[in-house]
Computed example of a mutant assay.
Amino acid sequence: MVWMTAAEALKVLNVRPQTLYANVSRGKIRAKTDDADPRRSLYHRDDIARMAQRSNGRRKIDVVSAQAMQWGDPVLPSAISTVHNGRLFYRGQDAAELSVTATLEDIAMLLWQSEPGQPPSLPLADSAAPIVTDSALGAGLLALALRSAGDPPTLGRPAADLRAEAACVLATLTQAMAGPPTAGACTISRRLAQAWQRPDAEDMIRRALVLMADHELNASTFALRVAISTGASLAAGVLAGFTTLTGPLHGGASAEFGRLTAAAKLHGAETAIGQWLASGRPLPAFGHPLYPEGDARARTLLNLLPKMEPYAALAAAAEAQAGELPNIDFALTLLAAAHQLPDDAPFILFALGRCVGWLAHALEQVQANHPIRPRARYVGPSEGIY
Rank of each mutant, 00 (worst) to 15 (best):
A376K: 04
R54M: 07
A159C: 02
L290A: 14
S220T: 11
L301N: 11
F330I: 05
W276K: 01
A318N: 10
G184K: 13
Q367R: 11
D329M: 02
D344H: 08
I205Y: 06
I107H: 07
M51F: 06
G251M: 13
T333A: 12
A318G: 14
L302S: 14
H267K: 05
S114D: 15
S233Q: 08
V83P: 05
A336T: 05
L234P: 13
N327L: 07
D106H: 08
G140Y: 15
G323L: 00
R50G: 00
P119M: 11
P371T: 05
R30D: 14
A149H: 13
L314E: 01
Q367T: 07
D295N: 10
I80S: 03
F222P: 11
I188S: 03
P326C: 06
G140M: 15
A368M: 10
W276M: 01
A66K: 02
R299Q: 14
D62S: 03
E364I: 07
Y90W: 09
S114V: 08
M4I: 06
Q93Y: 08
G357W: 14
M69R: 04
A143D: 12
E383C: 02
Q93M: 07
A128Y: 13
R373A: 05
W3F: 09
P306E: 14
P74R: 06
Y43F: 15
Y311H: 13
L155N: 04
A193P: 12
Q197I: 03
M212L: 13
S25Y: 12
D37V: 08
S65A: 06
L305Y: 01
R297M: 10
A296D: 15
V75H: 03
G237N: 10
D47N: 05
V366Y: 04
L144I: 12
T230G: 14
L314M: 13
C168P: 00
S382L: 02
M4C: 10
R299K: 12
S81T: 04
E383N: 02
R50A: 00
L305W: 01
D134H: 13
Q321N: 05
L349Q: 06
F347C: 02
A331R: 02
D35F: 08
K307N: 11
M4H: 10
A36V: 05
A337Q: 14
Y311C: 00
D214A: 12
L234G: 12
A6K: 00
L142I: 14
P130S: 15
D62Y: 04
M212Q: 11
P306N: 13
V64R: 09
S25W: 01
A128G: 13
R225T: 13
L349H: 07
K307E: 15
W3T: 04
G247M: 13
T154H: 03
P342V: 04
L76H: 08
T101E: 09
F286E: 02
N369Q: 15
L141G: 11
A227N: 07
W358I: 09
A338G: 04
P284Q: 04
A171F: 03
A9L: 01
E165G: 01
R375M: 07
L234H: 11
R45H: 10
S55C: 00
L290G: 06
P153E: 12
E216C: 11
W3Q: 06
P289L: 08
F89W: 14
G150M: 13
P119V: 08
L211M: 06
E319C: 08
A272Q: 01
A272F: 00
